[in-house]
């Protein structure tokens, strides 16, 4: 059973113990539009909170995905290289970007839960 957290950069992070899966939210994929290229981090890469972790390019523009917390990358989602549109079709599930081990679980305290994120998004429109 994992716990879901969100950032103000519209990333989600599903935490299970000291491992986590990171992706972008449905709101984010809608704002980006059609995703045409994704570059995910390689296994073993160490990320500090706020580091540029992945690149996402839509038809319109390039954006970065930042590490929501510090840790080491376990796996990047290799399927996105050939099927970047998965990010649009299944942002919260098959469209995950990378998995990581957390080096400091207290960093999760700064993130939003589902309810806080939903009201954050509602305040943007």
């Amino acid at each position: 059973m994992s716990t879901l957290y969100f950032t103000e950069d519209h990333e989600w992070i599903a935490v299970d113990g000291d491992t986590a899966t990171v992706g972008i939210t449905d709101y984010a994929q809608k704002q980006l539009g059609d995703v045409v290229f994704v570059e995910v981090p390689e296994a073993g890469k160490t990320l500090a909170k706020g580091d540029e972790a992945a690149v996402i390019e839509s038809v319109k523009a390039a954006s970065e995905v930042y590490a929501p917390v510090s840790g080491a990358v376990i796996e990047g989602n290799a399927d996105l290289a050939d099927a970047p549109a998965t990010v649009n079709e299944s942002p919260m599930d098959d469209g995950w970007f990378f998995k990581m081990t957390l080096s400091d679980t207290s960093e999760l305290d700064d993130l939003m839960d589902q309810e806080a994120y939903d009201s954050f998004v509602a305040g943007l429109d």
Binding site: G33, D34, V36, S58, V59, K60
Partner: peptide, 12 residues
């Protein structure tokens, strides 16, 4: 309008 609900890819 930069795009409509269909999006850039489908419009193209």
């Amino acid at each position: 309008p930069v795009q409509y609900p269909a999006g850039v890819l489908k419009e193209h």
